[in-house]
Nucleic acid binder design. Structure first.
Lengths: 327, 327
DNA sequence: GAGGATGATGTTACCGCTCACAGTACACGG
DNA sequence: CCGTGTACTGTGAGCGGTAACATCATCCTC
């Protein structure tokens, strides 16, 4: 493995000149430069980024921390982040926390020790984020914000989405509606719910709410209990796509049809499913753009921006499909 | 940012003793050890992994390189890889290549310079892989293999899947079948096709083939041309899920119904879609297990295994659903 | 009680690169 | 001809750890 001194020796210069050739080419005479470049090529020299990081104090590494990259929303966010990261010369690391504080804490500690240049987070743990901020590691929050934490963030206007979705449901003739799933204390869940509640309020109606978690199992469980209690509503709004899928699975299991027996809508698109069969009415969230925006904000910070924290709010769109077509 | 010498000073010992306390605790007397640990806690010291990497020659960093992490197959692979990576103390980096050789080459060069401990690849470029191997960076191939490259690999028995899928189609009464999409030269595409061709052969039938790429657009385009030429078959086998989705989109656009007018099946599950509505017949590939297995193999290599390259073959399952229910 | 093993800790150098500073050579103005 | 730029290149130190070796009590053993 050729190192910089090998190149230097072969080119008959000092290591510093090789370094300059790579990092500040115009501070090296053309003749020397080409000699050095040739030596680099001959030896197949690739600079050691680890060593460079040690002196420069930066790693060009950024991390994305989400609950579960398999959640299509985060998959798409990831793609947005990676595209922009790559363009700016960063390498992206990813970690799943599965909503477990401890996993999150550990992971963030690893990121500190690795001296990542910045972190994009979608989590709930305020303490963990402080760990990063105390170490002056730029942080951008995406999708969720954390009370008491000052940081750039990219959120999605799910409140608006909730209102509009409710409007749509009322216009379609649904009256008895239940909101299911979602963790209390999660900012985006709260905004979704608030939007729905306000939508109901504006229509002079009440909304039934049954929180849970944000995974498929929660959707199944909630629907099972609704059925068991004989409280199946006319329409269901699921806190996210996984919950909706869970609800759907349980309904199918019990012979309930959508939309014939129950209307169903949720927050978050399910990309391929919606293409395969545009069935489910959703509040479409611009996940890719959120990822891009988050990475751009992070880049600004890493470059040293000291502007006050920015909150970027991305608009949503209610996509009406068959699942809320009242029979 | 506290460094090891700060801790040492505070604990009244040398830096080396602090290092030992962390890495080989039993070589330090209990009294000193607890003094050091306290100093660490007081200062909130977190070791600098960059510096450690420089001396130890390892980074505990591994990378996953795929064409597109948004492809549900790779998303799931990623999750499998990350779970195992985290368990073994590695941090995972991900990169998308979009099937572009140049992007792939660049990314792998970055990985070399970052001195990652290992790489899991699903790509086609032999030269790029050699770059890694020359540098003695362990490589595991997943899903695709590359002719002429000796490396551990995890593949999926899509040949078998192809045969079984064809059997199912024939049993269902389909006769005129077209295989669409997929890049020539891609090992897994070739195996899929080979399986289908052999399945056709065994049934004494012919299979029409129209290759393309592995993305949605390719599915749309291929279907469009089939329609325009008036060669819409009785059933379509798509090389992967994206192609199938593209085909579906185009068929819907043209008023063709599945399965009433055309049967449709593909390789690769579309997780949430299949739960939302179990519609599409697929050859289910164990993506999560593939990711796990790949990471385990990589871990072995990183630990120094010099066993000959292993090829792990994972079985598939044909999941029959409505899209191939002949009217 | 001398010689040697053992355990705890310290010293030094180095991983590969770059920063700050230090030459060196040549050009130009007065 | 000297002083002062300007352009290029080199030297030495250090980033924050750790390997290898050195040191120094302490404790046996005979």
């Amino acid at each position: 493995m050729a190192k910089i001194r090998d190149v230097a020796q072969r080119a008959g210069v000092s290591a510093m000149t090789v370094s300059r050739t790579l990092n500040q080419p115009d501070r090296v005479s053309p003749a020397t430069r080409s000699r050095v470049l040739e030596a680099i090529k001959d030896l197949g020299y690739i600079p050691n980024a680890v060593a460079r990081s040690l002196t420069q104090g930066r790693t060009d590494l950024i991390a994305l921390v989400v609950s579960d990259i398999q959640n299509p929303f985060f998959t798409t966010v990831t793609r947005g982040v990676e595209d922009v990261a790559q363009r700016h010369g960063y390498t992206l690391m990813v970690g799943n926390t599965d909503e477990q504080m401890e996993k999150e804490r550990q992971y963030l500690e690893v990121l500190v020790s690795r001296h990542v240049d910045g972190v994009i987070l979608s989590t709930t743990g305020a303490d963990q984020v402080r760990l990063l901020q105390e170490r002056h590691i730029p942080v951008v929050l995406v999708d969720r914000v954390i009370p008491g934490i000052q940081a750039d963030s990219v959120v999605i206007d799910v409140y608006d989405g909730g209102r509009k979705l409710m409007q749509h449901l009322y216009e379609s003739g649904y009256r008895d509606i239940t909101f299911i799933g979602g963790t209390p204390g999660n900012s985006t869940v709260e905004a979704r719910l608030a939007g729905c509640l306000d939508g109901a309020h504006e229509a002079g109606r009440s909304l039934s709410v049954r929180l849970g978690r944000l995974d498929r199992a929660s959707g199944e469980a909630t629907l099972a209990s609704l059925c068991d209690e004989g409280r199946v509503p006319e329409a269901i709004v699921a806190a996210n796509n996984l919950v909706a899928v869970g609800a759907m699975v349980e309904m199918r299991r019990r012979g309930l049809r959508v939309p014939e027996d129950v209307g169903l809508a949720c927050f978050g698109e399910i990309e391929l499913a919606s293409l395969l069969d545009p069935f489910l009415t959703v509040v479409r969230e611009p996940a890719y753009d959120a990822g891009r925006a988050a990475m751009e904000l992070l880049h600004q910070r890493i470059r040293g921006s000291t502007a006050p924290p920015v909150q970027r709010v991305l608009p949503v769109e209610v996509v009406v499909r068959r699942s809320t077509r009242r029979p």
